[in-house]
């Protein structure tokens, strides 16, 4: 029974072998970035898609994870695995501290409070002086070492992050099909009715928020170890928007949405970077920004349920055939 439920994950496991055959560093690095972003969006997906709470500040948790790993390893010579753990835990603790008050806010106000938090943390990275290295950041982050394995090349890192992502996916599958997953959904649908079923909405929302911060921090730590250099610029508001974009593109409240969203956005990123200069000589990143904006707006208007929902157009008639009476 368990195997049948996880057939998508097993298929994914097989797909992951293909890059090993191609063995291209470019492919590896793209896939590593996809997995890292996807880990962030998995958590954000639980927060937004299930608990129904938005965050425009997750780049901050992502960055806090990255800086935690970077500072602990380069300034304090912590073992890398321990630093990675701290990279996940610290953002979780910060989320626990700020979440209690923040999550009382509704919709727009929550969006703006998280947005403000994101900007504030980004300023701290920039103005952190010696500790964060200011705008130029810090380099020389050592390779991640787990036991005797040092993740010192793209292939090894690829295997590591996708393995972690798979574990997280299994966990998320369990979560959304559990009592807790249903409770999260019920908060999104009607907080009032959820409370009447005995769900402590405030507590569960906070847990989802902490969970998403932990995952974002973990991803940030992995990112720091992967690129071995860190600066404030990848953790700006723009990145937070990208995370939301991935969650929305993939489809909120769907299992494959976060991964799909990360794949689409990162691939699009790469594609635009390759294609745009060919079509329009001399053009740079500006086209990408415009196209992102247009996609985001277009999706919200025409496909607010994300790309995963497109799959339903194909599946629905089939179901009807099977169950004519419904």
């Amino acid at each position: 029974m368990h195997l049948k439920n996880h057939k998508g994950l097993i298929l994914l496991l097989f797909l992951l072998v293909i890059p090993l055959k191609i063995d291209s560093n470019y492919l590896y690095s793209t896939l590593v970035i996809i997995a890292i972003y996807s880990i962030v969006v998995q958590g954000l997906g639980i927060l937004m898609g299930y608990a129904g709470q938005v965050s425009f500040g997750h780049a901050a948790f992502f960055g806090l994870g990255g800086y935690t790993a970077a500072i602990l390893t380069t300034r304090f010579q912590w073992p890398t695995l321990l630093a990675l753990l701290a990279a996940a835990i610290l953002p979780g603790i910060i989320a626990a501290i700020i979440g209690r008050q923040t999550l009382k806010l509704r919709e727009l106000y929550l969006a703006l409070a998280t947005l403000g938090f994101g900007i504030l943390v980004h300023i701290i990275f920039n103005e952190g002086g010696e500790l964060t290295g200011g705008p130029s950041g810090m380099s020389g982050i050592p390779n991640l070492t787990i036991g005797i394995i040092s993740f010192d090349n793209d292939q090894k890192f690829y295997l590591l992050v996708w393995f972690m992502l798979l574990l997280i996916l299994v966990g998320i599958y369990n979560l959304v099909h559990s009592r807790t997953g249903r409770a999260l959904c019920s908060i999104r649908e009607s907080e009032y009715a959820a409370e009447n079923a005995g769900v402590d909405c405030a507590r569960l929302k906070l847990q989802a928020f902490i969970f998403s911060a932990l995952l974002a921090g973990l991803a940030g730590g992995l990112y720091a170890f992967y690129v071995s250099f860190i600066s404030p610029s990848p953790f700006s508001f723009h990145t937070s928007v990208q995370f939301v974009l991935m969650a929305v593109i993939g489809g909120l409240g769907t299992f494959w949405g976060p991964l799909l969203g990360a794949v689409v956005v990162v691939s699009l990123n790469e594609l635009l970077r390759e294609i745009v200069p060919l079509l329009i000589p001399g053009a740079g990143g500006e086209y990408q920004i415009i196209i992102y904006g247009i996609i985001l707006v277009g999706l919200m208007i025409f496909q607010p349920k994300g790309l995963s929902s497109i799959g339903r157009y194909f599946r629905l008639p089939l179901k009807k055939e099977l169950k004519p009476e419904g």
Partner: peptide
């Protein structure tokens, strides 16, 4: 009874 963490870890 199962809480957030135990649901995730299954």
């Amino acid at each position: 009874k199962k809480g957030f963490v135990r649901s995730f870890l299954s």
